[in-house]
Design a binder for these strands. Sequence first.
DNA 1: AGCCAGGAGATTT
DNA 2: AAATCTCATGGC
Length: 311
Amino acid sequence: MFENRSIKYSIVNENEITINLPEEFNFKVNLGYLLREKNECMFEIEEERITRVIAVGENRALVQISENDQQQLVVRFLDGTRPQKGWQRDQIIEYIIEWFDLENDLSHFYKMAATDQLLKNPIQDFYGLRNIGIPDLFEALCWGIIGQQINLTYAYTLKRRFVEKFGESIEWNEKKYWIFPTYDKIAKLTPDDLADMKMTVKKSEYIIGIAQLMEIGELSKDNLMLLKDFKRAEKKLIKIRGIGPWTANYVLMRCLRFPNAFPIDDVGLINSIKTLAGLDRKPTKEEIMEYAAPWRNWESYATFYLWRVLY
DNA sequence: AGCCAGGAGATTT
DNA sequence: AAATCTCATGGC
């Protein structure tokens, strides 16, 4: 038995590990979220089993993630990608714990949401849903930028083009499992190299610029975490070309996991509130802030659940 | 066919 | 400072 702060995991055999799940976690509900987009290129789901590559630096493993009947995730390493060293195995497990936000205690969120006008139904419909994250900072930033001002369907198409052109993959059972392009590779490109992606030239510039900032060590998940304070991290991100309030909060929510991150300009959030509140027009920013007042310090979870209502 | 899309930066008022 | 324009392509 090993301990990762509050989450315990066990080595079953050399190819299999189990991770104890918190009570407020429902695997099928989380699968439902992951299944909503058919064009997702970073994982595959069949028979309630996720198959994907988990890459932490040079450490890479092709894993299948499922659940057993003891409220545990089962992680199986495929095809000889079993980590050779203990610290490598721990990195992969850490990633999975972060991906599903397993360390977060949702009891206070549910208590607050139970009496909230907008959240009370979503938390019943999706009880056990976690804010499924994007632990890799470069991936989170790229996904945010790609998604700016275009519909989600097209955003997934753009992500797939980017990943399949610049990412690496591991092949298994005649299928390719992709690794998101790394910033050191993208830092060396010019916007011309991204032209056939058909994202805007500006988005290409933003992504390359961010890759270069990460390459020189000016921007990293660690140095954002070290800022501790949400506002300081937000300011540091917004200073970067291509990152505005929406993208900064999106990344602070899904990668850095600040509970109070809140992409308030998000059209999905706006439309979800419009639907749930039964408005005949989009709510204004001021109205959204009123709805969100009870959510203090749970804005990111509130947003995630409201998104789930529509997507 | 035309409006809109998980915005941001630049320009104009 | 606040309002408006531009990017750019595809989904529905």
